[in-house]
Design a protein around this nucleic acid. Structure first.
Length: 247
DNA sequence: CTGTGGATTTGCT
DNA sequence: GCAAATCCACAGG
């Protein structure tokens, strides 16, 4: 299609699906997390577009909860590092870990309350060659090696704190967006979270059952929940009481 | 100012 | 299965 250059460029028209609404994220992380499964993360960069479908997430709760979540960066209240988690919902919180990697989170809850969702795994959708290049892998490398893991997915999409922390995920002009392309999810796997020392018993990890890109051990104590289809707001069935143990 | 440890990944045993 | 790699936020003094 021909462009004149006079009209403001609509960068969204070639992006898959539609932007999520702010209200989607203005809820407790344990409610937002399972509903993020199946949504897509779109990342624009100077070297092109990379897109991944969200297949594994973890919820991290803010200090306002009755149940403390000592595994959460936000659990002691706002600091210079975690301030995005206490800002408005639908923003990117990126932090570095172990001096080598980055992890990507989406802020949840209304402004003033902490809490977020950690992205643990994506399924590559577009820009797969670029992902392999960034990961230092050959073209045709297994999808799990590209984006299966919180550090791996950030590397595959080129996400880092300096350029992506604090970005609005719901702005049509944002280089980083969360979108819904109509992919339907009904059944969700629920387990304990991975790689933490505190609050290990909380069932706050959510994944698409059987997806190849899901990280962590194949066999974990798990249960399943059902999401109510076609409903924007979470139904009761999608809510896992954070103080309830597995089993 | 300093010590500590982490929401990870990789490679070697 | 285990430890190294390697940075920095933050808590404590």
């Amino acid at each position: 299609m021909r462009r004149t250059g006079i009209v403001r460029r609509d960068r969204t028209e070639h992006l898959p699906g539609r932007l999520l609404k702010r209200a989607f994220f203005e809820a407790p992380p344990e409610r937002v997390a399972p509903r993020l499964l199946g949504k897509i993360l779109v990342c624009r960069s100077s070297v092109g577009l990379t897109v991944g479908r969200i297949v594994e997430v973890e919820a991290y709760l803010g200090p306002h909860n009755a149940t403390p979540d000592r595994a959460a960066h936000s659990h002691r209240g706002p600091t210079p590092r975690n301030q995005v988690l206490f800002g408005p919902p639908g923003y990117a919180y990126v932090y570095s870990i172990y001096g080598r990697y980055f992890c990507m989170n989406f802020s949840c809850e209304k402004e003033g309350l902490g809490g977020g969702v950690l992205l643990r795994a994506l399924e590559p959708v577009a820009g797969i060659e670029q992902m392999a290049r960034r990961r230092g892998l050959q073209p045709g490398a297994p999808a799990r090696d590209l984006t299966g893991g919180p550090g791996r997915l950030c590397q595959a999409l080129g996400l880092n704190r300096e350029t992506h922390n604090g970005l609005d995920l719901l702005d049509p002009d944002s280089p980083l967006q969360v979108r819904d392309d109509g992919f339907r999810v009904t059944r969700v796997l629920v387990t304990r979270r991975i790689g933490i020392r505190h609050a290990v018993e909380l069932p706050l990890r959510f994944a698409l059952p059987g997806n190849e890109c899901v990280s962590g051990p194949k066999k974990m104590e798990a249960k399943w929940i059902s999401l109510r289809p076609g409903v924007a707001a979470p139904g009761r069935s999608s809510h896992v009481a954070p103080d309830r143990l597995l089993r």
